[in-house]
């Protein structure tokens, strides 16, 4: 499996949950914490992110940055630890 991860700008996130539904891996959920604007923000709740960018695409506030293991490391079948 290709591995990926995301970084959420928790101050920008408004907790609309659209990314949670968009995620095919069900990797995302709302945090119990709230940001300074009073919104619960999104976070990874499972370590199965594939870096497919679906969450970032539907995010209205551009709060999500997506990373994926490089093509190089996929080719070399490097071991990935999460």
């Amino acid at each position: 499996m290709i591995r990926g991860t995301i970084k959420v700008d928790t101050e920008i996130c408004k907790g609309c949950e659209l990314c949670i539904t968009a995620c095919p891996q069900k990797s995302l959920g709302l945090s119990n914490n709230i940001n300074s604007h009073g919104f619960k923000y999104v976070e990874l709740i499972q370590d199965n992110c594939t870096g497919c960018i679906n969450c970032a695409l539907v995010c209205p506030d551009s709060a999500i940055t997506v990373y994926r293991q490089s093509k190089n490391s996929i080719k070399q079948n490097k071991k990935v630890t999460v």
Binding site: T5, L44, C49, I53, S62, T65, Y67, Q69, S70
Partner: peptide
């Protein structure tokens, strides 16, 4: 929350466009 993702050779695949403030 999953805190640490220690994936080797991470590649940026999507970020907010630079043309957005």
């Amino acid at each position: 929350m999953i805190n640490k993702c220690e994936i080797e050779d991470l590649e940026l695949v999507y970020e907010k466009p630079k043309t957005l403030t």
